[in-house]
Design a protein around this nucleic acid. Structure first.
Lengths: 197, 197
DNA sequence: CCTACCGATCGGTAGG
DNA sequence: CCTACCGATCGGTAGG
């Protein structure tokens, strides 16, 4: 009798919307996502799209959340088995570089960080929170590497984290802007100098 | 008799518009600039604003041009007197870092590169052209440094340029997103490792 | 999930 | 440089 969809179908639609918005945001930016265009691409009404979230900002946060989740599954989660310290961290960065190079995808989080660096609000807060978690992870592994003697005792972990981040940002730019097929190779070479294997 | 402005006044208004648009674009992105908001901030009509350029895209190109011009005057132009090679290049990057740290300005060109990396068109082309000119400058100085023996003969200039670019991108992110007062210091420390003084 | 609608704003034009 | 206006689209709501 009721045309209402089941909980499962509703969740599936929600996922479809987020998926579509993530693809759109990768090209147009997270602010460039519009309800109307999403509705067109998904063959839904605008009300059907926005009804799942309430506001565009909530949708943006859901998209960001999905992207962060994907990063976590693809990068740190893949190297949990590696030896803590320099080895695990080097492998994590290697995974990240490969992830960025896949389909010239680049790094969504990094792009959104640039887009929102001057737009205070929940989206910016969420970006900073995600980057902080990653930064804490990096610093933790660096601490282990120093403690175990893999890195010199006078290593400045914040400085090294800064430089590692630079390598990742250069990789993202090379991939997204120049579609440079050598990006991941260059990144690994730079990594090898910062975290000697 | 005629309320028409002189050529000089017209040029001054054009400059005011570009200035205002550059400030706006630094916060909202170059696509986030709108004729209506500019008109409001400048106490002009929309037609008065857009009349100087014809289309928003031409205005965007003018803003980009101004930003590039400012970068050139502030960074490479300031170090023309330095000894070619590693010294000049290190001083150029140092100027760039300081420029980015001024008022947490960051790097406009870098932000626009991220914003337009997936938006084909004249703006993207202009961004790539500007970055290519900078890249050629860097590679040229690196070549001089290798030839003069300041850098090892087996140096890979493209690799080193990639890593130097990474330091700059990390600096821009630290400045714009985190307002990190240590950004320029970290950048110089990284630079010293890549281009030994 | 839909249709129908809201006020606001978008880039831009006509005409002066 | 202005006023007045264009069609399109924006995010979002009411009501079903």
């Amino acid at each position: 009798m009721s045309p209402r969809k089941s909980v499962i179908e509703t969740a599936a639609t929600r996922t479809r919307i987020i998926e579509c918005a993530l693809a759109s945001a990768s090209a147009e930016g997270l602010e460039g996502v519009t309800i109307g265009r999403l509705a067109g691409e998904l063959a839904m009404s605008k009300a059907g799209v926005i009804g799942h979230f309430g506001t565009k900002e909530v949708l943006q946060l859901a998209v960001l959340d999905t992207a962060v989740d994907r990063f976590v599954r693809r990068v740190p989660a893949r190297v949990v088995g590696a030896r803590p310290g320099a080895e695990r961290l080097a492998r994590a960065f290697g995974e990240w570089f490969d992830y960025m190079a896949d389909d010239h995808r680049g790094c969504f989080l990094t792009s959104v960080a640039t887009e929102f660096d001057d737009r205070p609000g929940p989206v910016r807060d969420a970006v900073i929170a995600a980057l902080s978690r990653w930064s804490a992870y990096v610093l933790d592994e660096l601490g282990t590497a120093v403690d175990s003697g893999e890195l010199p005792r006078d290593t400045d972990p914040d400085q090294l984290a800064f430089e590692l981040n630079g390598v990742a940002l250069a990789t993202a730019q090379a991939v997204q802007l120049h579609h440079d097929p050598l990006a991941a190779t260059r990144a690994r070479r730079a990594l090898a100098r910062l975290l000697p294997p």
